[in-house]
Amino acid sequence: MTTAVQRLRTLPEAAYETGEFVMMEGLSRTAARNIFFGGSLFFFVIFVALTAHSHWYIVTQSTDHAGLNDSVKHGKAVWEEHSCINCHTLLGEGAYFAPELGNVWIRYGGLESPEGARAGIKTWMQIQPTGVPGRRQMPNFNLTDAELDALVDFFEWMSRINTQGWPPNVAG
């Protein structure tokens, strides 16, 4: 049984360039390959350059990189240890099961009353699960007071990132 593959190897190369192919006649396989490699490299270099600039922009402009103290870092670690992202979103990324938390500090009134917001968020964490029938449940992660404070510091830090005006409103 001769397959197309075998025929390819028995026919002269020129047979494929004789206009038998309706589409992309002018383009040879080698040319297509070279365009692919050259173009990809070109766009890759631009991409890396722009993300390098974005990296610089993040650490100098859009986030409080200097204010990334141990408590904020600890808060991020707590956030990750319990994989909060698999229910919530953070700056719109994550799961879509529970509310956005990038602006939870703002939603709890952190701008007007930092102490009130801190107490509010900590209490919320502690009274879970609500057990309200028919309502989505959040587990109680049994966080220590230090962990809770760190988490709140992390939320406060997140809320100050320059997100180009997202989210559209406080609902997140």
Binding site: S40, F43, F44, I46, F47, L50, T51, S54, Y57, I58, S62, T63, L91, G92, E93, I161, N162, T163, Q164, W166, P167
Partner: peptide
């Protein structure tokens, strides 16, 4: 590659 930018709208980039 540059399309990655559609994830860089609102995360501090």
């Amino acid at each position: 590659l540059l399309g990655t930018g559609h994830h860089y709208y609102w995360i501090g980039t």
